[in-house]
Design a binder for these strands. Structure first.
Length: 321
DNA sequence: CATTCGTGAAGACGAAT
DNA sequence: ATTCGATTTCACGAATG
């Protein structure tokens, strides 16, 4: 399996590594390089020098969870060889009480075998769960970093994932799907929510699966997460657009007025927040274009138009009332 | 010229059946 | 699982400044 036979694996210095990978030649001994799939390294076959570490395997992984899915395999998770599969490290012990030649075992041997089976099974399932958890937590951390999610929310995400794993919710679903759902739930519960689209943009799983898994996890763990308050998006939009504190404050007032009239149910919270920022910009004479607000909020100009008209209307009638 | 506004067709989503 | 209603988006052209 391993291309190199040399036990010691020194690591090459970064210089000239890129070029040696391209030319497929070892910088030390001119031997040729080979990829070690199991370790994710690129190493020389002659001297064992590792020229590239932690190479990400982008190849497909085909897994099935039960016979029903065997014929409609889908891509799930990271490559099997690297993080998931146990790579032959664990052992299965047969259930038949016979030795290698097929003879029945004595009762003393049977008891001994039974104990071995029990412990072996415990070890196997325990380490499987730990691999699962390690993988998932690394994935959560990667996505959280990309989104700049605060540490407290990452903790929440990992707690949610642990609970999901304990309750067996990950079976039949991809680890990454559940990990993403846990992160999404965590940021929704925190102080700086991210939209489903934002979370999707850093996940390896498509939007639909995230949404489905999110709902599932929410229901199974009895988590109650209401609709996001649009006002929570205001500070982020404000700083991205460099608008004044006054305008920012004004935007919040507009949202308050709208909420009092229940003008916000069923609408996209981000869209509402974006419209509030735009409208507040008009009111305080520091101009932001609809295009700019839409850009940072990932909302179309059309939606901003619709919302900000409603917002101003709600504000008017509450002033006169 | 840039920005804003309105429209109709089309897609996405949640709720209800 | 399908259907329905509301929302959002896209593409376009017109109006406004």
């Amino acid at each position: 399996m391993s291309p190199q036979n040399t036990p010691e694996r020194q690591v090459a210095t970064p210089t000239s590594v890129t070029s040696s990978i391209e030319s497929n030649q070892c910088p030390e001994c001119r031997g040729h390089l080979a990829v070690d799939e199991a370790r994710g390294d690129t190493a020389c076959t002659e001297c064992g020098l590792v020229v590239e570490q932690d190479r990400v395997d982008t190849g497909p992984e085909w897994r099935t969870f039960d016979t029903g899915y065997r014929d409609e395999r889908t891509r799930v998770g990271l490559p099997r060889t690297k993080l998931l599969h146990d790579e032959g490290l664990s052992t299965s012990i047969g259930w038949q009480d016979r030795d290698a030649t097929g003879r029945m075992l004595t009762s003393r041997q049977r008891a001994r075998t039974r104990r071995l089976r029990t412990w072996n099974e415990r070890f196997r399932t325990k380490s499987a769960r730990e691999r699962n958890l390690k993988h998932a937590l690394a994935e959560i951390d990667r996505m959280a970093s990309a989104l700049g999610v605060p540490k407290a929310d990452r903790e929440t995400a990992s707690v949610i994932y642990r609970r999901a794993l304990k309750d067996g919710l990950v079976q039949g679903r991809s680890i990454e799907g559940v990990a993403t759902a846990a992160l999404y739930a965590a940021v929704r519960m925190g102080t700086t929510p991210r939209s489903l689209d934002e979370v999707t943009s850093v996940s390896r799983v498509d939007r639909g699966e995230i949404a489905r898994t999110y709902r599932y996890v929410l229901r199974e763990l009895n988590l109650e997460i209401g609709p996001t308050d649009p006002a929570q998006f205001i500070p982020r939009l404000a700083s991205a657009l460099d608008i004044s504190d006054e305008t920012e404050h004004r935007a919040c007032e507009l949202l308050e007025a709208a909420k009092a009239k229940h003008l916000h149910s069923g609408k996209s919270p981000v869209g509402l927040a974006a419209a509030a920022v735009y409208a507040a910009g008009l009111l305080t004479n520091d101009h932001v274009t609809q295009a700019d607000v839409g850009e940072v909020a990932n909302i179309s100009e059309v939606t901003i138009r619709h919302r900000y008209a409603e917002l101003l209307e709600a504000q008017e009638s509450s002033v006169t009332a």
